[in-house]
Design a protein around this nucleic acid. Structure first.
Length: 602
DNA sequence: CTGTAGACTTAGGATCCTCTGT
DNA sequence: ACAGAGGATCCTAAGTCTACAG
């Protein structure tokens, strides 16, 4: 109890809150000392559980299952080799998975086709298997058209009908989308079981097109507290297992059939459980800030170590730090797309240039990282690093490991020794956040308009996204919408200009009536200013858009940037938080929005 | 040490929804 | 009122990292 109060008091001192919430906090402390109740308004004012325990009470409705398969109407026909053919329900369902995707690039890929066909055949009955031997002879076009039309029809539904459907989903969300965890009603992140379909791996995935099986209650493990009401399985079904494990955060799990990995139902990022973890992540990154200089000098020394393993570790660490590379766990060959991170880099992924474009010791990186996103970068490095890399490359084949004495667990063990809780990914968090803070300092202009400040923020955000290599496919409509925007800028420019002429003409014309001159002048001047401002805004928008073409800002905003930096910046420069964070983001970062004042330093 | 299961975070694309300009 | 652009949200794949068995 006492430590609980102490913690609150510390929080109070730490955050230097305004008097009003301070009083509230003090009241909370007094209340708690008196009643021994966890009376906090917010989870971030609550006491933590003992080590390893994630909750004391957990109750929920269980997952929401995908609707059962609805057979095709009789007038939708599948043809094999030109002949109409009525498929058994199981085979038909899988055929619809493919038919729906006909206009997707996936279905043009050989691996996708091959995997699909193999798995489809497992769902056919004997007779179907005897007939259907070649995918090229299958005609799914009527199936495709059926689902396309159905989709169009849904879109064209009258408003009231759409409203009705919306209410249905809301009802499901209300019933299945929330749970009770330690007295809080918490939103669940993914309460719907993934429906069956064809596996869509990213990049060159060897398993793309394989059949993702339907999950039944008999496949699902339920997790809740023993004193909670255990969720009812759907009528006529049983759960695989019900367990009461409060050392984990998931509510339900099942094993997926493509990779054999476990999938979980977990809470939404706005929840206490996720929020606390997120907060803790940024606190770890801030601790790294205190020791990062020391760590950097250490790995610089290690570049000259007599031990090869140590040298490799030091160079890898340098990449992880400087370039924000991911750790790079080893992957099972042939099970996933061929992608790498730092420790799994191969000889073929880097090129050394003693001199390039007037710079010395340049390393060219070219590899596919997470989600098969290409990392391409030319980086001038220290001479020692360059020499080491040359050494690591000696007598190796292109597909040999660059760091042959290294893996992620060696790197992370070492990091753990340097700082409690330090792992490779903390460097990404740290470097992302510190970059945002520094960029905001450098780019923000006190007297700028709010719009210009937002542009500065986005630029700072962009610097981080660039560092972390967060990319997106340029929107299909990018060129066109860019042209539209440019056109708008042009016309607005002309308008503003002509309106300026208008202004002087008006002045001349109304020269006779003295009093009206100044009034008209004022009016026109105001109008002109408004137009100028509008034009500025458009130009800013255009710049922002162009610079954002291939860069995704959302990922870093959501996962790497300490929200307290953003909140402090917003407060300091009078930018409404809604201009930077949308509703989802504000929910996720509620703790930071509540506790941060403008003096916060990462 | 090595391999694997498990739990959790991070990620881009798909889809839905809302706002804007016509 | 309507289309369509772009942002918000959903979806689930693909990583990281730890624990544990052998």
């Amino acid at each position: 109890m006492i430590s609980n109060g102490c913690r609150l008091l510390c929080a109070l001192l730490r955050t230097r809150r305004s008097p009003q919430p301070a009083r509230r906090l003090l009241t909370a402390i007094a209340l708690r000392v008196k009643s021994c109740q966890p009376a906090a308004r917010h989870w971030w004012e609550e006491k933590n559980h003992e080590d390893g325990v994630k909750w004391k009470f957990l109750e929920h409705r269980g997952p929401f299952f995908a609707p059962p398969y609805e057979p095709l109407p009789d007038d939708v026909t599948f043809y094999y080799d030109g002949q109409p053919m009525k498929l058994s329900p199981a085979a038909e369902e899988v055929a619809t998975f493919y038919g729906k995707m006909l206009d997707h690039e996936y279905t043009t890929k050989e691996i996708f086709q091959k995997n699909f066909f193999t798995d489809w055949r497992t769902q056919m009955n004997k007779d179907e298997r005897k007939i259907i031997k070649h995918l090229e002879k299958c005609d799914f076009s009527e199936i495709h058209k059926y689902f396309f039309d159905k989709n169009e029809a849904r879109k064209a539904l009258p408003k009231e009908e759409k409203q009705k459907l919306k209410e249905e989903t809301n009802k499901i969300q209300e019933e299945y989308g929330f749970c009770t965890l330690d007295g809080h009603r918490e939103k669940i992140g993914n309460f719907k079981i993934e429906p069956p379909g064809l596996f869509r791996g990213r990049g060159d995935h060897p398993k793309m097109g394989m059949l993702k099986l339907r999950i039944r209650p008999e496949d699902v493990i339920i997790n809740c507290s023993s004193d909670a009401k255990v969720p009812e399985p759907p009528p006529g079904h049983k759960w695989k297992e019900v367990r009461f494990d409060n050392t984990v955060t998931w509510l339900a799990s099942w094993t997926e059939n493509i990779q054999g990995s476990i999938k979980y139902i977990m809470l939404n990022p706005s929840s206490k459980l996720k929020g606390e973890k997120d907060w803790q992540k940024y606190e770890t990154a801030r601790r790294l800030k205190n020791v990062v200089d020391q760590i950097r000098s250490q790995y610089r020394l290690d570049w000259k170590s007599r031990e090869m393993k140590k040298r490799q570790r030091a160079v890898a660490l340098y990449f992880i730090d400087k370039l924000a590379l991911r750790a790079g766990n080893e992957k099972e060959e042939g099970e996933t797309a061929d992608t790498v991170g730092c420790c799994s880099l191969r000889v073929e992924h880097i090129k050394l240039f003693p001199e390039l474009d007037g710079q010395q010791y340049v390393v060219e990186f070219d590899f596919l990282g997470k989600d098969s996103i290409r990392y391409y970068n030319k980086v001038p490095v220290e001479k020692e690093v360059f020499k080491n890399l040359k050494l690591f490359l000696e007598n190796k084949n292109p597909d040999d490991d660059l760091f042959d004495r290294l893996n992620t667990s060696i790197v992370n063990k070492h990091l753990q020794d340097l700082m409690d809780g330090l792992t490779a990914k903390v460097f990404r968090t740290y470097n992302a956040s510190i970059t945002l803070q520094n960029q905001l300092k450098a780019l923000t202009n006190e007297d700028d308009t709010v719009a210009a400040k937002i542009l500065s923020y986005n630029r700072a955000n962009r610097a981080v996204a660039l560092l972390c290599n967060h990319q997106r496919a340029p929107p299909k409509t990018f060129e066109k919408s860019m042209q539209n925007l440019q056109a708008k800028v042009q016309s607005s420019q002309i308008y503003a200009c002509s309106s300026g002429c208008e202004q002087s003409r008006t002045v001349v014309r109304s020269f006779t009536t003295d009093s009206s001159i100044s009034r008209e002048m004022e009016k026109k001047k105001k109008q002109c200013e408004r137009l100028e401002e509008q034009l500025m805004k458009l130009k800013l928008q255009a710049t922002d858009k162009e610079e954002n073409k291939q860069i995704a800002l959302g990922t870093s905003k959501l996962n790497y940037l300490d929200p307290r930096i953003t909140v402090a910046w917003c407060k300091k420069y009078g930018v409404p938080i809604e201009k930077i964070y949308n509703k989802t983001q504000r929910d996720k970062f509620a703790w930071a929005i509540d506790m941060t004042n403008e003096d916060f330093e990462f």
